[in-house]
Design a protein around this nucleic acid. Structure first.
Length: 524
DNA sequence: TTGTGTTTTATTGCCTCC
DNA sequence: GGAGGCAATAAAACACAA
């Protein structure tokens, strides 16, 4: 096997040298590279050569790829910064400039800021387990997509991470809220303990870098918005509320009673027409509003759950959602539910993968389209019920849904593959995002105005968009691990008759590993 | 099928660091 | 001066709409 792979590698090298036409990296190569990139943005010579050998590429190609990948990350970061800059100007959300990125007129990250710290140093520190203060991590490190990406991306990557998140208007911008997980009661970002960080592979970079910065601003904004209505004796931000007693919502909805809690806590301080006017929505109204928001977004939360399986972008989104919902919990009149953080934890069941090291990348049109959520709800029922059963009825479901169903049929051994798949998807998904984001946003607005069923449909459509981007040559998780690489090669380019290049079999990557861990994108 | 736009890969030149 | 990285650019590959 190894020999064969070596032969392939040689062939690949030779062929790539023979014709100077550029050749696309195979999905396997890209995935491996992406994954490796998530681990090491600046691979050493040794790493490069080993990677080159294992992927059947030249060191030059590897170097070039990493170089371009970094550029891509950077570009995405700029785009994100640009997007957030636009959002910032177009909305009234307060942003703490002091804690944000230095931005130029278009909101892009200034070079000086970006290069403030040698990323290689960051990586080396990361590699050797020196923890950064979160601020450092979020500010200095960019990647993932990851990503993004991707990892899963990853993003994102990716791409994407992905990237990759420009779809979010400011009002919906999930970055607006600080992740309570990392918050102290003062709203200060508390350093994640080293162990967790290591376990989670929490390596904020790229997207996360921006996110961290924006979150700083966001938490400030939230505080400001809460303003005087934020009870000193109330639970601090990020702290779970106690559950209401059972049946608390079973009684008929009453006319609103202007409870002190309501008046004080359910504040719309920034709403111009709120002061002194009986505009307080009724409790039921508020709750309905809240719930409608939840329900209207339930479907999208399914994807959020997927983040557990697919990497950091989703993971990131979940965090953001949690943040949002946590804030909602502070605002909503009925702190019935525990912090949705907890709810969320519950809804998907305990999954250590949540803290998986894979969760670093972000980016994904997929997620962007599916994750425009302001809050979170317990979706377990849904998973176990209709949706899942539908999804599992693969015979009648589109490949997209089948793919989606894989989210729910999560199996740890496939994580890497999922991650890899997502990476690729994310990366690809980014391609038209800039040009299409407005369309998607419009679509989204429409979606929000319809019922859940419509939403489901639309969501599928959205997902279809994403799925279209998924390379057809990447089989679904369930089959991939069983399919030989050759098989997959033959599945590739089914109609175009493009002669598949000999590709080193991925088990190569499982050969004796160097200390820096070669990505295990098995099956592709 | 074709045209167009986007992404990816390769090349080159410049810069910084040692 | 060499090595490594970044940025700009060109061109191929790809995706998608008409």
């Amino acid at each position: 096997m190894l020999e064969l792979s070596e032969v392939h590698s040689e062939e690949n090298k030779v062929s790539s040298e023979k014709d100077k036409k550029r050749r696309l990296k195979t999905p396997a190569q890209v995935m491996a590279l992406e994954k490796f990139y998530n681990e090491h943005r600046y691979p050493t010579e040794e790493m490069k050569s080993q990677l080159a050998e294992q992927l059947g590429l030249t060191e030059k190609q590897i170097s070039g790829w990493f170089c371009h990948r970094r550029l891509k990350d950077k570009r995405l970061l700029r785009d994100e910064a640009c997007a957030s800059g636009r959002q910032d100007r177009s909305s009234g959300v307060i942003q703490d400039r002091g804690s944000g990125l230095g931005q130029d007129s278009c909101g892009s990250t200034k070079h000086g800021d970006y290069r403030n710290v040698d990323p290689r140093e960051v990586e080396s520190r990361r590699l050797y387990g020196n923890d950064f203060p979160v601020a450092d991590l979020t500010y200095k490190h960019r990647s993932h997509y990851t990503e993004t990406v991707s990892g899963a991306d990853n993003t994102s990557s990716e791409s994407s991470s992905s990237s990759q998140d420009k779809f979010f208007s400011q009002a919906e911008d999930p970055y607006d809220m600080e992740n309570p997980r990392y918050l102290t009661h003062n709203g200060v970002i508390a350093p994640v303990n080293a162990k967790n960080e290591k376990i989670m592979g929490y390596k904020p970079s790229g997207y996360l870098k921006v996110k961290g910065e924006i979150e700083n601003a966001a938490i400030t904004a939230v505080k400001k918005q809460l303003g005087g209505h934020y009870r000193e004796d109330g639970p601090p931000l990020g702290v779970d509320f106690q559950q209401l007693p059972p049946g608390a919502f079973e009684s008929p909805i009453r006319k609103p009673v202007r409870e002190p809690y309501d008046d004080e806590n359910l504040a719309f301080p920034n709403s111009p027409d709120i002061s002194g006017v009986e505009r307080q929505p009724s409790l039921s109204d508020k709750y309905e509003l809240y719930n409608s928001k939840l329900s209207s977004q339930d479907l999208y939360m399914e994807e959020a759950n997927c983040s557990r399986l697919h990497g950091s972008y989703f993971q990131d989104k979940i965090s953001q959602l949690k943040q949002k919902s946590t804030v909602l919990n502070h605002v909503k009149p009925f702190p019935k539910r525990n912090s949705s953080l907890d709810l969320y934890e519950d809804s998907a069941g305990e999954s250590p993968v949540y803290n998986s090291k894979k969760n670093q990348r972000m980016s994904s049109k997929h997620a962007v389209e599916g994750m425009r959520i302001d809050s979170v709800t317990n979706r377990r029922g849904h998973y176990d019920g209709k949706i899942e059963s539908e999804l599992h009825d693969q015979a009648n479901v589109s490949p997209n849904l089948i793919q989606r169903s894989e989210y729910f049929k999560f199996k740890p051994p496939n994580l890497i593959l999922n991650h890899c798949e997502l990476l690729d998807t994310e990366e690809r998904g980014l391609s038209t995002r800039m040009t299409k984001e407005e369309k998607v946003n419009r679509k989204w607005k429409g979606i929000k105005e319809h019922g859940n069923q419509v939403k489901l449909k639309m969501h599928s459509t959205n997902e279809m968009t994403v799925a279209k981007r998924v390379r057809p040559d990447i089989p679904q998780q369930g089959y991939v691990t069983k399919a030989s690489f050759t098989e997959m090669q033959t599945r590739k380019f089914p109609s175009k008759g493009i002669e598949p290049r000999p590709i080193p079999t991925m088990p190569l990557l499982l050969e004796p590993k160097p200390k820096w861990h070669v990505p295990e994108c098995t099956g592709i």
